[in-house]
Write a protein that binds this DNA or RNA. Sequence first.
DNA 1: CAATGCAGTTAGAATCATTCTAATTCTAAA
DNA 2: TTTAGAATTAGAATGATTCTAACTGCATTG
Lengths: 151, 151
Amino acid sequence: MPPSPSRTPAKPSGLDCRLAVLGSDVRLTPHRREVFEVLASSTDHPTAYDILDRVKSRSPGISLATVYNCLEHLTTAGLIKLVHLERGQSRYCANLHEHVHFHCETCGKVIDAHPVADFDPAKFWSLPPGTKVTRTDLAIHGTCSACAAKS
Amino acid sequence: MPPSPSRTPAKPSGLDCRLAVLGSDVRLTPHRREVFEVLASSTDHPTAYDILDRVKSRSPGISLATVYNCLEHLTTAGLIKLVHLERGQSRYCANLHEHVHFHCETCGKVIDAHPVADFDPAKFWSLPPGTKVTRTDLAIHGTCSACAAKS
DNA sequence: CAATGCAGTTAGAATCATTCTAATTCTAAA
DNA sequence: TTTAGAATTAGAATGATTCTAACTGCATTG
């Protein structure tokens, strides 16, 4: 059989550009698009349940399984990132600019911290020869300014 | 009633020094001691189940609940550290020297990387004013030399 | 146009990791 | 020795995620 032409989602929009730019081949179905849009408009690093709640206002019938499924596809495609800061629920992040996470140990809030200088981990930590680094995840833990002010 | 003198474990050993040095007040019961010793002699960042398996050879009757309980106390006391690199099981680490973790995405191995220079996150990422940093967790992801050689 | 096939979606079950509960055991002080 | 409190235990409960099997709808094929 001949290779089938790639299918495109029903309503192209600005998001498709982003998709194309990143060279991803994920099919952006309506649910995946909604999950992505919800995440892209959130700055609080929501959990899968948070995302389910938010997507439900647009697609009341969506299930948790579909949210996990969409998040999995979007993560694989590199459109979003998975963040692990604590034991328990994973969090998701659609900020693809280089950044690290600040986690307030008092209120649990997660804040993106943007780079002000180039960072090369090899300058600070010694890795065995032959090791290849693909990415680094820095989590900064402490007390946010609001919580620090209270105590 | 008068304040009770601090109780000491039955068989003091070198570990008690470490305990004292760190100013911790955890009671080092036999199980806690074994869990700590198992972890201190491991370099592979074992999970709670791994630790259960290893402790069982010395204390066959120990339960998973006790392992979690011991790990919790040891973590609170600052004797060991909890490491989250991926979704799923937490890992534990008794290396209290300052270090970061390298995680091989191919074989899953976790390697400690030791510092070769002072690292101040504030020099590389901007945090909101008033933020207090208590610790940083850096995870370096990539391919270890063994896996890199294979491919 | 109807048939087919496949990806997406779903509810609910299953699994996995962790925490909780209530009973029991141990240790050390009274 | 009695007692109080902490440690320990098995198993239940919870919480997060993944799996399963059925169903849906679209797109290509006949």
